[in-house]
Design a protein around this nucleic acid. Structure first.
Lengths: 219, 219
DNA sequence: ATTGATGTTCTGTTACTTCTGAAAGAACAG
DNA sequence: CTGTTCTTTCAGAAGTAACAGAACATCAAT
């Protein structure tokens, strides 16, 4: 029953210990469980080669950017999936522990790029990924800015305040710190401006740039 | 002699086993070594509180972006240092093994943000960081793009090519892959355009944006 | 050739992150 | 209430990356 792909379960797999001396008694419950399990197997998305390729690559990319491999893989799977998936489906498809899925999903939820939805007739939570790529990256970037850029700006400001002008080399240190602080302020500025614009506009601006470049190259 | 900060070495620390029955004989070599060591200690940059703060924070930030802590710390140290530092100075200042410094410096060199320079009268290599913050980040971003964005674009293209249109759900997968590919193409476009502009222009554009925002807010 | 100083590569250890399986907890159906 | 299904939490196992120290390599001076 565990090796989903290799064989379908037989009814016998569900037979209870209620065997009689004359033979097995299959009650409704048993038959129902059997039917359910077969349906589950049929519904379970088998990964195509392309999907596997995408999910594996995405996982690797994640690790390079300080994002957990499993988290990234789950996101990739949900992004490609046309329907919301239950935690167990995710676990089986990616061959990871159920608990691992739980914590990973939670992380994706805190980023706001995955959310739980409910499917009629199913008590389990199903998870689906946001599909708007631009919005997704905007969210991730915003979070990371908050967690990494902002504290750095903070630190630089504190450093500049703490700088003792009587100390040897204070002038040079101040110069360097100010240059770095200037950069981070500018990045923040850029981010704020991007945030203000709706997704479509950024996309259009970029496309405009592309066209201009092409015209220039042609002319 | 190892605990640089705690005490200066005495001449006795260098005395050879050439002691005579009547008393110690200090030859020129010994005195010279002594003088050198004292000079070294005096020259060795003692980190100020602010410098420590900056270096530690930078190291932490590095780890979050998939950059080795030591690599980031060394960069921070060199960035703040008004003069090029020898490997051993770096090792002692940051309390890491020289071998670690060697490999870390090499990595910084491959990124092009640190380079070896020679100091007159010193056979050792000294290392200094690029000081132009904008240029530094441009270099790092360019490298990371090459190592991470480009392979991802590659993968997406391959996926789209490999997609079997007869397979179930191929249409949906194509949709998702194309959306993602579009995003990565746009990012590449943006990067190329930024690269084309000299550092100063990007800075000016940003500042312009800031001013516009301020005017708008005031008016 | 020898010695000492400097720089690099390799290897085993350490520290850290990720992951699993078990157990507890929560929601629900009968 | 009781058993079932689903989810979360947690402690420890497994895996990974960083690191120190040793061995090796290079070079300069003599």
């Amino acid at each position: 029953m565990r090796d989903r792909a290799s064989r379908l379960p037989g009814v016998a797999d569900f037979a209870r210990e209620s065997d009689t001396p004359t033979g097995r008694v299959l009650d409704f419950c048993v038959v129902f469980q059997y039917i359910q399990s077969v349906l589950k197997v049929l519904i379970m998305a088998e990964l195509t080669g392309v999907q596997k390729q995408y999910i594996l690559h995405w996982g690797e990319m994640g690790t390079r950017w300080g994002i957990n491999r499993t988290v990234a893989q789950i996101h990739a799977l949900l992004y490609l999936s046309p329907r919301a998936l239950a935690a167990e489906e995710i676990a089986e498809t990616l061959s990871v522990a159920r608990s691992n899925v739980s914590t990973s999903i939670r992380e994706l939820e805190t980023w706001g790029i995955v959310r739980a939805v409910h499917v009629l007739g199913d008590r389990r939570e199903h998870y689906e990924s946001m599909k708007d790529v631009w919005e997704m990256f905007r969210l991730v970037i915003e979070q990371r800015k908050r967690r990494e850029i902002d504290p750095t700006r903070e630190m630089l400001r504190r450093c500049l305040a703490d700088l003792d002008p009587h100390e040897a080399g204070a002038d040079y240190t101040r110069l360097r710190l100010e240059a770095m602080a200037g950069f981070f302020e500018a990045v923040t500025e850029l981010h704020d401006q991007m945030k203000r614009l709706p997704t479509g506009t950024v996309r259009k601006l970029l496309r405009m740039g592309t066209k201009m470049k092409k015209v220039k190259a042609a002319g």
